[in-house]
Design a protein around this nucleic acid. Structure first.
Lengths: 239, 239
DNA sequence: AAAAGGACCTAACGAAAATCAAGGAAGTAG
DNA sequence: CTACTTCCTTGATTTTCGTTAGGTCCTTTT
């Protein structure tokens, strides 16, 4: 399921962060070599260790990127949705994908071959600047993820995740969990059971989870929890 | 302690990965705006949340990049040495440093202002490609770090760290721990006490640690340890 | 309507690692 | 040589988290 981009679609894609800063000509040039792919839930997009000959932009749905260890264990490295780029890092080292990509919902992604990207950059160097900005944001996100893993408890990471989903800066807020709990757990570096326990603990901080809906009664309370030091957190007073 | 680069030095710097692929002219252009800084052990190079107006290349010594939480806890995001680039991600987001940088030994770093980089890229787009490659390698390294944290035990991560330092592909090998154990622990996402105990466990895999020297009696044995699944590792037979 | 399957939660156990506290080893200054 | 600091190790205890197994609820199937 793969089609080229028709020019009427190009302007719709201008809202994507990576393409936003480009001129109309540069955008058209870059998209000329791109194809749109529809992918069913559970289908693989690329495989770890394969030659990295393309990178991707999510148009619809959710995609996970993960590394599989030799023993079948997997570590979720990122989860991406509408407008986000993924696997763009591999595209420049002229090497292989360091991780695998899989659709976790039915998805549509834009696939841009590395060879075409190289040509496009030669034609318009501004494309390189847009890519670098995208890479940097990715880098920044990974830095935050590492900090979270090293200094936050499970419940704190879950709280952080919920706060990122919430739009309200304060007060109460209801939100929809974007993908199933097993994947959320993977994304946060824990097992589903631990995620369950974390939700339990967050009850005493005013978080109610029912099905795929979460209700935060007070965003600021959660915020203070995330800010707290590891050792001080989650002692007898709450629980 | 900050000086500009004299042209006689430029060719010596050609071996640095970021600069390697550039033409002599591009290299000279980029280095024209660079300054060399000598930094004492413990001195800060840049501060988290400050405006990111420069990125760096290590010429001598070791530098750590870390994030500090409000409560004084810190997460080491990377440790860099000779030839490696750091904080280059911040140079493109036009924002603030997501982490702080500090010299852990007396060091010399090359400081390249973001404004000058932008000018240089305009003059020669190939510089952009070199930067992208550097960013990508960084991205890849962080991905591996996240994988390690999520799927390896402490002892496995230490083994991995030692293997990265070793030059021999097999057999025995002696190596020098490049910086103090507290930092190694931070780098690997654990406490110094846990690092100590991890070294203990590795004794039964043929690793001897005395002072800042480590002797690996068989590199391959360590390699198999790292490859093993989490749950199978470190049971009664060893220890 | 009953059965089957899937997603999620709960509980009990064990392993890994953090914490707290104390003791050693090496280097430095008096 | 002794006192002191800094860095590292060790031991005892607690917490966290993975594992396993069983249970509930909800949806789909027959």
């Amino acid at each position: 399921m793969s089609t080229t981009i028709v020019s009427s679609e190009v302007e719709k894609l201008a809202e994507i962060p990576l393409l936003k800063r480009l001129s109309t000509e540069a955008r058209e040039q870059l998209l000329r070599g791109a194809t749109k792919k529809s992918i069913s839930r559970g289908e693989m997009i690329f495989f770890q260790d394969d030659k990295a000959d393309a990178f991707f932009i999510v148009l619809e749905g959710w995609v996970k990127v993960f590394r599989a260890t030799s023993s079948g264990d997997e570590a979720v490295v990122g989860v991406f949705t509408r407008g986000q780029t993924f696997a763009e890092g591999a595209a420049f080292t002229n090497s292989n994908y360091p991780a695998s990509g899989e659709a976790v919902t039915d998805s549509v992604v834009l696939c841009i071959p590395v060879a075409h990207l190289a040509n496009s950059i030669a034609a318009d160097p501004n494309i390189a600047l847009a890519m670098m900005s995208s890479l940097s944001m990715h880098l920044h996100q990974l830095v935050l993820q590492i900090e979270g893993l090293k200094t936050h408890t499970g419940a704190q990471r879950v709280a952080e995740f919920l706060l990122n989903l919430s739009t309200e800066p304060a007060g109460s807020c209801t939100l929809v969990l974007p993908y199933d709990k097993a994947l959320i757990a993977g994304r946060l570096g824990m097992k589903p059971e631990s995620l369950s326990r974390a939700f339990q603990k967050l009850k005493s901080y005013g978080v109610e989870v029912k099905q795929n809906r979460a209700i935060i009664s007070n965003v600021q309370v959660l915020n203070t929890l995330v800010e707290q030091e590891r050792t001080v957190v989650m002692h007898s007073s709450h629980g």
